[in-house]
Write a protein that binds this DNA or RNA. Structure first.
Lengths: 339, 339
DNA sequence: CTGAAAGCGCTTACAG
DNA sequence: CTGAAAGCGCTTACAG
């Protein structure tokens, strides 16, 4: 079972291995060109010999290997919690299929517990891949900078602001999505809208808030508040209603649920007592989420585009970083009413 | 950003690259041994230089690369159907983590539609990995034989009977699980039990049937029938009851549901009219499946063991194939009653 | 248009 | 116990 190599093909076609190499991986600025006749012979030889290039050797020799890495800071396939990564993975797989790439999941670089780290060891392992897609929240953003400094191509899922490093990323357009929600609320007659968000402020939270405050207008009163879900108690709701807010935009589902609980506790109901719009997309789709008026995040598409952008960066490293924002959707539910 | 290589380390430690190689990958029957002093110097040099071996080069040179491939005939992350592979993947990831392996998903070898094939091209791509885990039903079993002939180590999830090839596999012990179900039914007073299975008979179906018929005894009447779910109609049920069967063991949930439908159609109910036990495990766990008396399949564990066995085969290729069966569980529901 | 040669970073007999 | 050398299968300047 000896492997058929390039030199076998070259011998059969009566050319040198360099010619075979040129045939199997045609490059624009190639220093070597092949005649039609020679190419025909090479292809015929490849056919009869059943030759296929050895990716490992191609890789070592500096060629492309058609493998893209997928790195996550937590387990990719969690059992206990919702599978946050699944929809992204789905899109990534589709993108990889379309572009003829294999996917390398970096599972080795993780301790059994605790967050993974790209370094040390990880970065070296990544070297097998042509580039990588980074998923999930990084516990330490300096790692991104450090990876960036190595020159290894990668794209993050989710916008990333980094000092002294222009990163490739694919993100959902939360700003536009939230602005759209505000517009819809206004069209339904709402004049006082409250935004309740998480206390942990990352890029996507900033984007949502920006989209919200960007709709500031004469006839609208917008206020932003960030708090834990525990802080949304009876008093909080009382104050909210007394202040005249008719709709609350919550950054997470947890906030939305906490709020609805309080409404129920005071024998009110949503959206009669107050309207609620969730500025997030749930991971699973149990029956209960359908009723919520909310935005949808194009997770699968983000994964697919991430692959596409990554390949583009690998092929043309001189490119400026690619930053893609994808539009979110508005999902009408029954928690927002006109007033 | 030049990569730190083995020779950098060797130079700093004042030894040859062979010694460094011996230090980073100690092998039992190594032709080269390293002195304590030298090893210490090498480790120190590796430390200060931040050296980590290049897996690609290791691979080309014939060393191990700590990458295991995962091949599926269909998309690994399906969007439309239930994710059949997820629980296995979860176990595989856990196993890979524990054993310091990365996971390479072969997504490139698939056309956009139609089943994937290991050949051609695929086998070459697999070469990057040390071995592979094969998931899902193969449309053409000859491919397994062919892959086996290449000498590439792999293990399948699910038992595989192949002519002239002893394969490594990890399977659920359906035979024992079904035998156990029969025993439980008998203990509850059932004397006439019917087994209804899928018409497509693969290894796991054979195992179930074997487990069933293996409990044949004087005081038990056991009968096996294979049919489409459509064939389970009113007449079928009538006959079943007339014949005196008091419990039906169904190979799939679909069969179980079809049967229950017919029971309902004749204004009966399960388990009053007849008991049902599903000899399968659902992929998702919606509220509705909980009530079924059924067996559970240790999918995660199967994935984890598959990794472990694969690594064992990679390390000792002279081993005989490893065939592991893992016990299933019995999940009491409310569709089986004593009579 | 094509060949001979070096080199990618490792591992592994083969000599000392 | 350790070094020099060949080789894994490719790609890529460098010469023709």
């Amino acid at each position: 079972m000896k492997r058929v190599t390039q030199s076998d093909v070259a011998a059969m076609a009566g050319v040198s291995t360099a010619v075979v190499s040129a045939v199997i991986s045609p490059k624009p600025g190639k220093t070597i060109r092949v005649g039609e006749e020679a190419e025909k012979r090479v292809r015929a030889a490849m056919e009869t010999l059943g030759y296929a290039p050895d990716v490992v050797a191609q890789s070592l020799a500096g060629g492309k290997r058609n493998i893209i890495g997928v790195f996550t800071y937590e387990a990719i396939f969690p059992s206990d919690s919702e599978n946050f990564f699944y929809p992204f993975l789905l899109g990534i797989e589709r993108g990889a299929m379309k572009l003829g790439q294999d996917l390398l999941l970096f599972t080795s670089s993780s301790l059994e517990k605790g967050p993974r780290s790209i370094f040390p060891g990880g970065a070296n392992r990544m070297g097998v891949a042509d580039g990588a897609i980074l998923l999930g929240e990084e516990p330490d953003k300096r790692e991104l900078k450090r990876l960036y400094d190595t020159g290894f191509p990668f794209v993050t899922i989710g916008r990333r602001d980094t000092v002294k490093a222009e990163l490739n990323w694919v993100a959902a357009d939360y700003a536009a999505a939230v602005a759209d929600v505000v517009k819809r609320c206004a069209a339904l007659g709402h004049r006082k809208l409250k935004f309740v968000g998480a206390t942990k402020v990352r890029e996507q939270n900033i984007d949502r808030e920006r989209g919200f405050m960007g709709r500031q207008a004469e006839d609208l009163t917008l206020s932003v508040e960030r708090c834990e879900t525990d802080d949304i108690n009876g008093e909080w709701l009382r104050r909210c209603l007394d202040d005249g807010y008719t709709v609350v935009l919550t950054e997470t589902f947890k906030h939305a649920v906490a709020l609805e609980c309080q409404v129920a506790a005071m024998h009110g109901s949503v959206p009669q007592t107050i309207s609620i719009v969730a500025l997030a997309s749930p991971l699973t789709r149990p029956a209960d989420v359908e009723r919520w008026t909310r935005i949808s995040v194009p997770r699968e598409e983000m994964g697919e585009v991430a692959v596409r952008n990554l390949i583009a960066q690998i092929r043309s490293p001189e490119n400026t970083p690619i930053k893609t924002t994808l539009p979110c959707g508005f999902v009408p539910g029954s928690t927002l009413q006109a007033i």
